[in-house]
Amino acid sequence: MSIDIALLLGQDGVVNGAIYALLALALVLVFSVTRVIFIPQGEFVAYGGLTLAALQEGRGPGTFWLLCAVRVAVALADGIAALRAGSGRSLRWALAGDLGYLTLLAAVLYLAPFASWPAWVQIPLALALVVPLGPAVYRLAYQPLAGASILVLLIVSVAVHVALVSLGLLFFGAEGSQTRAFSDARLELGRVEVGAQALCVVLFSVALMAALHAFFERTSYGKALRASAMNRVGARLVGIPVGLSGRLSFALAALIGALSGILIAPITTLYYDTGFLMGLKGFVGAIIGGLASYPVAVGGALLVGLIEALASFWASAYKEVIVFALVVPVLVWRSLRTHHLEDDE
């Protein structure tokens, strides 16, 4: 293996690793706040990328109808809850907000020539379609079971994953899609040629991580999420609603997922079922960080990306085996270092 090949493989590994790192962050975030192992994290990658691809091809993406359906279901669930509690006032505002949001999106999708818009307008539009699915999924699938054991929440995750993948096939079809590249330029960095798109992925990922850091350190919502993650009961006692922290963490996870999908859609082909494997690789990274440490999860995810790149060069037929076998030594090491705690309350 010459130095050139090593550099190219390293570059490939870092680009993929950056995406896995984002997914690992989202998984750690969701798990620490809600104890949900968010298997459907990868679906948001596919939904984000494929929604953008559908917009660029001038098709109204099916995710809009899914959004309508889940918002109606959320409104019904909230309505029943509010009737039971006898408070209808705030609900009316929420309903009006929902209706306005969906009408606005519908107007854009049916009246505007969105296919010819530049990418920097299409991307927010795609995000506006996909990200609200996150909190809605939390409200419908997880919030009614917020007190259940980790195992029950995991089983719900499997169900949500299967449902979202099936809907993805319905909306986007079995064949894959690519989106237009932000830029086709290639840059010379030392002795390696780097695609501008690959550089975009890494830079955006770093920027997103920095933004998340700032969010957790500086804003009150971020602090509320950290408080919920550290001590759920204590956070409730000081007045942080469980539902709010859950919805917020899911919104962030959906945002991270959708952005990851949009970032890699120009350099690879995305399919309706791409997300699961990517999410799983992010999960391996998150496991290395014990589903608790953000920096270690990022490092672990980068390691997964690099090992994957090397494995695809040396033994491409066994690539996935090698990547997922990484979990075994990590688990052994972790189980030797930490003493086991029964984590179910």
Binding site: I5, L8, I267, Y271, L277, L310, W314, S316, E320
Partner: peptide, 20 residues
Amino acid sequence: RERYNRLDTSVTGQVLKILS
């Protein structure tokens, strides 16, 4: 003789091996 998976997001490693 290189292999990849249907859902792989990158085949750079395999392609480099082929080119060499």
